[in-house]
Amino acid sequence: MKTTEELHQILSEEFGEDIIELKAEEVVAPWIVVKGDQIQKITKFLRDEPGLRFDSLMCLSGVHYPKENTLGVVYHLFSTTEKHKLTLKVIMPEDDAHLPTVEQVWKTADWHEREAFDMFGIRFDGHPDHRRILCPDDWEGYPLRKDYQVQEFYCGMKVKY
């Protein structure tokens, strides 16, 4: 059982301070912000390192921050053996939102990443089945972005009623 602060300590020793940043003040639950291109290495380490053993990805969500023109991906990790939780965040620019997939680390990420792509247009490099999951394959736009405008026609049908 480790707190986020302790986990942050371990991670920064392993990967260096510059790619990892702790956010613990003025929040309900603390989280760690990491650089997107390192996410595969970090998650593999978190999963396999004895004492950490984050064997389950509870949730993977996309978030849109239109004020900063960024998109975020939030990973909620949990260890069924050590029983500790960790929240990881990756922030990336809105016009070039892509990061490596963690599908090889946790299979849970497979469909969650497809959902994040479907809803936010975040691209996950290396995903084996990278396509929309909930919306039709030829849907336009990413519905959960805050500035989303629904398309007028879909396959000749009026969308807005």
Partner: peptide, 9 residues
């Protein structure tokens, strides 16, 4: 915003 249409496998 580029709109990427992905096809299934």
């Amino acid at each position: 915003m580029t709109n990427v249409k992905e096809k299934g496998p």
